[in-house]
């Protein structure tokens, strides 16, 4: 086996084993034919475009679309559903942030004067709202089946988030920590899902105009919850606030929703793609709830808060494993490559 062949076979290891079992030999044959006469002394490697084409194929075979084997198709549908849910979550956060900023601008209801936005903070607050609304636009585009604009907007939103948190990190280094990393991870994961799962083989998206408003509705519901439950919790003893607060922020409400949805789907033997999508959605929430920032921290209610967050992460992890196992059991294990082995002549 030549050095170039070894290197190309190494690149092909990106593909699933079942796919390689069917395709590896003929792909190697085609690649070596295209490479022509090459000696080991030439020390050639597969070019970047070749490696990129195999990486693209690896994504499309693992995160399947039209014509993919059942397990790859279910994974693809799950990642696409997660991308939609994840962008919806970011869009709802953005609308919630708009509401918060309106309060701070003093436009909605009175906030203490020291919290109100003053002169030079206006530009930053407006920038913050604008970057949030990019997510709302990205979700709306996906809901309307405009996949390409949705991808462009989502990448823009991610770049803006990274840039703004970098600036914030330079200005106030104390915010740099696990929580910020977790937030960036939770922001990036739906974008990665969107870019990888909505490929050329992905089934067409059914446009839905009412869906575009869903994040706004969720944010309005959340604000209603915050306005009714928030003051009561704030008025309770500090220790109780520590136990309750992690269930009341947007992540806490999302975790509660995931726990309910996951349990219902498990008991009703829901579609494997839905089970997998919920399992993927649990991952960023587990990362966000790992209470590393609170280890060793002192203060009233801090220990109760850290313990609640840890419990949330642990229960979500158990749920994610249960959802994944249930989904995998519902799908056939052996997969071939569609079309190969059909119509074979003697």
């Amino acid at each position: 086996m030549s050095l170039l062949e070894q290197r190309y076979r190494f690149v092909l290891r990106m593909l699933p084993a079942s796919y390689r079992a069917e395709r590896e030999e003929e792909m190697v044959d085609a690649f070596l034919d295209a490479a022509g006469d090459v000696r080991d002394e030439d020390n050639l490697r597969p070019g970047l475009p070749e490696v990129a084409s195999v990486a693209g194929l690896a994504v499309r075979t693992r995160i399947g679309g039209l014509g993919a084997p059942p397990r790859a198709r279910a994974t693809g549908d799950a990642v696409r559903l997660f991308a939609l849910l994840g962008l919806g979550y970011l869009a709802a956060l953005a609308w919630d942030n708009v509401a918060a900023e309106l309060v701070l601008f003093g436009l909605v209801r009175a906030a203490p004067d020291e919290y109100l936005v003053t002169g030079e903070q206006w530009a930053w607050a407006l920038l913050w709202i604008a970057q949030g609304l990019v997510w709302a636009a990205a979700f709306a585009m996906l809901a309307l089946a405009r996949v390409r604009p949705a991808k462009v907007l989502a990448v823009t939103g991610l770049a803006a988030s990274v840039l703004m948190y970098a600036v914030l990190g330079v200005m106030t280094p104390e915010i740099l920590g696990w929580g910020l990393l977790g937030f960036l991870f939770a922001t990036a994961l739906p974008v990665v899902a969107l870019l990888s799962a909505y490929h050329a083989d992905a089934p067409p998206v059914r446009p839905s105009a009412p869906l575009t408003a869903a994040p706004l509705g969720v944010a309005a519901l959340y604000q209603a919850l915050a306005l009714t439950v928030g003051p009561r919790v704030a008025g309770s003893p500090v220790e109780s606030v520590g136990w309750l607060a992690p269930w009341l922020d947007p992540q806490g409400v999302t975790i509660a929703a995931l726990l309910v949805a996951g349990t219902v789907c498990l008991t009703r033997h829901a579609n494997p793609s839905l089970l997998l999508a919920l399992a993927i959605a649990a991952v960023p929430m587990i990362v966000l709830r790992a209470p590393f920032d609170y280890l060793g921290a002192q203060g009233d209610g801090v220990q109760a808060m850290a313990l609640t967050m840890l419990a949330q992460a642990a229960v979500l992890a158990v749920l994610a494993v249960a959802l994944t196992v249930a989904a995998m059991r519902a799908l056939p294990r052996v997969e071939g490559v569609p079309g190969v082995g059909q119509g074979r002549s003697a």
Binding site: A30, A52, L66, G67, D201, G339, Q342
Partner: peptide, 24 residues
């Protein structure tokens, strides 16, 4: 066509029944 792209195309065409294996 790069080889990875070619086999992505062939997979799709074979899945839709537009091409099939002739011989090995």
């Amino acid at each position: 066509l790069k080889i990875g792209t070619l086999y992505g195309v062939l997979d799709r065409l074979a899945a839709e029944g537009l091409v099939e294996l002739d011989r090995e």
